[in-house]
Design a protein around this nucleic acid. Structure first.
Lengths: 162, 162
DNA sequence: CAGATTTAAATGCATTTGCAAATATCCCTG
DNA sequence: CAGGGATATTTGCAAATGCATTTAAATCTG
């Protein structure tokens, strides 16, 4: 990849970040916003004995019933090995339950317990608040359009994912 | 904040995540998209001896000249202690330079070196590509609106930040 | 202006992370 | 149906992370 090799795609040379500016580079803005969102929940989670991976797993499990661990890893955006250990802790705390898959004995399905659901229910209002704060002063239709764009983006990056 | 205390805002009780659905909860979508974006750059960065914190610091420094470390931490979305150590490595590799602030001898300002700029220039095309991939098939005006909303969101969460 | 308080940055340390390898099982091919 | 990959999950281990503390310097207060 030397300075002389032609770019892979036609669009010519990319503008420099300096020209785009940080605040016009979407991934930067998104990382910054999510950094704050995640940090704002950390304290609340710590009070419930949860970490980010544990919370994300619970959140997904509150919506999706009995996924495989590898599916849960994708949905909850947590590395598989990290998730494996997070699940150990959640199981030890009785918030989830591992169950052997009926047709594939390599696989494990994860189910949230009543205790897990109740823990998540304690946390959810804070997550909803955090979202409201993010969107404060942004009209509903703009918000809807924004989420619509996010959904398209997820489809784009999902190529080889679940 | 018990179940009886009135909510801060009129909208009554928050809907459950189950009702909203993961794919209508913006923070979930954003975390998932950024997880993929960050992962897609990790290999490229590893080849340049960079980690996510180091890359973020370089990216910000390519745009903002000589910030204080604490400012750089905010802009680059990296914990101050993590950044401190990332800067050690970047300095050892000659990609940045620490310089005592002239008016406050507690403070340190960080400057990117030519080598640092050139390393970042190698990485930037991949970052730009990653962004293009995210936005594939999304029309320009929708993209602009999306970034506009992100900027509003950044303002919202920025309350006590820089 | 002395003492208390705040602020900037670095560091100690226990925990967390993620890559790579190990383990167990499944599936495909000849 | 045996053997050679795939695939699901866990685990070993070194490195990275982040909280809390330390150090040093600035600023506020009476």
């Amino acid at each position: 990849m030397t300075d002389q090799s032609p770019p892979e795609k036609p669009p010519g040379n990319q503008p420099r970040l300096g020209e785009v500016g940080l605040t016009n580079y979407a991934p930067y803005l998104m990382n910054r916003i999510m950094g704050r969102y995640n940090a704002s929940l950390r304290d609340e989670m710590a009070g419930l004995g949860l970490t980010t991976p544990k919370m994300r797993a619970l959140a997904v499990l509150s919506v999706i019933d009995g996924p495989l661990i590898r599916e849960l890893a994708v949905y909850s955006v947590v590395e598989q090995s990290t998730l494996s250990r997070a699940l150990d802790q959640l199981a030890a705390d009785g918030l989830i339950r591992r169950a052997a898959d009926s047709s594939d004995s390599r696989a494990t399905r994860i189910f949230i317990t009543d205790a897990g659901r109740s823990t998540f229910d304690t946390l959810w209002p804070r997550m909803a608040e955090a979202q409201s704060r993010m969107f404060r002063g942004i009209p509903d239709d703009e918000r809807r359009a924004f989420v619509g764009t996010l959904q398209k983006m997820l489809t784009n990056i999902r190529k080889h994912e679940i």
